[in-house]
Design a protein around this nucleic acid. Structure first.
Lengths: 171, 171
DNA sequence: ACCGTCATGTAATCGGTTACATGATTCT
DNA sequence: AGAATCATGTAACCGATTACATGACGGT
């Protein structure tokens, strides 16, 4: 049994597996794309590699199909459940990191107005994207908690638009 | 001359070196901490490794002190200037990534109220931090452009506080 | 002369990214 | 039956992180 350190990616996988009960990597990929994928990018190769890594360390159990696609189905082990619960139970005071190419260029001397004109449309698009998701979730009777993350996204997109619009046209 | 791909870290180093004209790794570290370090974390080992990497690929030139600390002073080469200018000139439509442990726990089932109580104070602190920086920069007659990044930080912190306060107490 | 902090690096490991590759369904 | 796309991986490389280690400088 190998010893590994659990990264944010690890917890994403553990969390999604718990949510699904049992999941194939592809299912995880779909789930991630619809939820945390909006904030964290996770390349699909990681979505295959990480469960394998977690399984080797005993956090997940695997069951492989005998025929056809021979997909691997992952499930939380006791160890996995505990690790996830521990992590979730500890409210974190850690701060975020914002890896934003637009802001980075701005900070390093890029032309503010040109950047603003490039950024505004993509943020508008993304705001609409989040709002659509929110409407869909709301209509499907999703409990309020599940909407929180989407609301966070919407709030930040609005903030981004306020910011870049002001940069583009600072009265 | 090695061929490397330029990462965001590379551009941070190139940008800071350009800003300083010539810089030692330690100076870069200080500069980064005061500016982009507020959004991107860069461990100090990278601040030493990255200029070396850039120098090997011809983006920076090195001059090492003969005695004492034998520090290495880096300067942009023509190649470095061009690479940086090219990057800055291309307004990016790429989107940000938000690596936020608090939001991640929230998304994966952490207790919203407990998370909010842990997050609010650190965001309050950080908002004050940015506001202090802003006042200092403003008082030192810094041109408006340099304040933009700080304003972006302030805006996002306010948004975070709005969000978490609402989570803690959703009327 | 000593001590704390400032400053500067190196070594080793590993997760993440990119690129490559292929089998299984579904649709026309 | 063939094409397109869905689904599932592997291989190789490398930047980032962690941990270790040490020399120089400034103050007492």
């Amino acid at each position: 049994m190998e010893v590994i350190t659990l990264t944010p990616t690890s917890y994403i996988v553990l969390g999604l597996v718990r949510y699904a009960g049992e999941a194939t990597p592809y299912a995880l990929k779909q789930m991630a794309a619809a939820t945390v994928g909006n904030f964290f990018s996770i390349p699909h190769s990681q979505i295959y590699a990480e469960p394998a890594r977690l399984a080797k360390a005993g956090y997940l159990s695997v069951r492989q199909e005998e025929s056809g696609r021979r997909r691997k189905h992952y499930e939380l082990t006791e160890k996995g459940k505990i690790a996830l619960a521990d992590w979730l139970e500890t409210p974190t005071g850690e701060l975020y990191e914002l890896r934003d190419p637009g802001l980075l260029k701005l900070a390093l001397g890029g032309d503010p107005v040109a950047l603003a004109h490039a950024q505004i449309p993509v943020h508008e698009e993304r705001l609409e994207h989040f709002q659509t998701i929110r409407r869909v979730l709301e209509a499907s009777g999703m409990p309020g908690d599940e909407l929180l993350i989407v609301d966070a996204g919407i709030g930040h997109e609005r903030e981004y638009l306020r910011f870049w619009r002001k940069v583009a046209d600072p009265n």
